[in-house]
Design a binder for these strands. Structure first.
Lengths: 142, 142
DNA sequence: ACGTCTTTTTACGTTAAAGTCAACAGAGAG
DNA sequence: CTCTCTGTTGACTTTAACGTAAAAAGACGT
């Protein structure tokens, strides 16, 4: 198995972030790349973790929340009390995510309405636009 | 029609925010309650706006993004160029929201996996828990 | 070996979104 | 009228999440 590594700039380019960001995440304990001398070497696993972090950010979670969530992925703890705690956290997170999904649904619906209004207004005043802007192809979902 | 109003503290209690937050939103131009003397009086419309703001926050949007989105809801502009711009913004927002929804789906799936692992681990070590914690009723969706 | 480019470390600066604190105004209860 | 609540304004502070700058150490092509 060939352990391929990524340099810091490769990751910054792939994900459109800065080196400062990556080092900051490391300082926060979210990443822990290997070192060759002083240089950081990011493994595929590190890259995956980074993707999880960025996904969390897109969803509006704070770095500490993200840290907690990623912590769950590690492995189920051996002790019963810890397991129960983990289950509680999962339940809480799930509720939060479902709420966000409802919020998104509402917002999308409202956007549709605004768009319909705009479209009507367009028809009223200007006729049709030259390019396809008036018949946007909707990105497929899920 | 009776115009019922809300005091600032009523809103803070209903939405679990502080007066500071409400005044801050006002300073940012997100709210504009009437005044009776110096006192703020929030109309039902103001309350609705506030709900939109908080929903935006839950989804991780910044206040200026929220401001822009709420601005769309106002009314379609009369000028064609403005209309087109509006449509573009709508399209961009929609894409963003759909991405978030995909992200949520992935995260939920991962949570399910973690939960399954935890459940298995539970069965392994401790048998079943006394209360219903081991058979969580899933919140209904949408 | 040399100059150039990348990377690291350290330190200070910045921005958004409030929190905290102080001083004061108005309104109603006793 | 005085006390107490609620609300207001203004100033200062805080926190998260980076940005920016400076100096030095490696890495790389020729």
């Amino acid at each position: 198995m060939q352990q391929r590594f990524y340099t810091i700039t490769q990751l910054t380019q792939e994900f459109a972030i800065t080196t400062r960001t990556l080092r900051f995440y490391e300082a926060q304990g979210l990443l822990a790349p290997q070192r060759r001398g002083r240089q950081r070497l990011y493994s595929p696993a590190d890259r995956t973790r980074l993707k999880l972090i960025l996904r969390g950010k897109r969803l509006g979670f704070s770095l500490s929340e993200i840290s907690e969530m990623i912590g769950m992925y590690g492995k189920a703890p051996g002790e019963a009390g810890q397991l129960r705690l983990l289950m509680e956290k999962i339940t809480a997170r799930r509720a939060e995510l479902l709420e966000k999904r409802r919020d998104i649904g509402l917002t999308l619906k409202e956007l549709d309405e605004v768009e319909a209004g705009a479209r009507a207004r367009m028809a009223e005043i200007g006729g049709v636009f030259e390019d396809g802007a008036a018949s946007i192809v909707r990105e497929e979902e899920a």
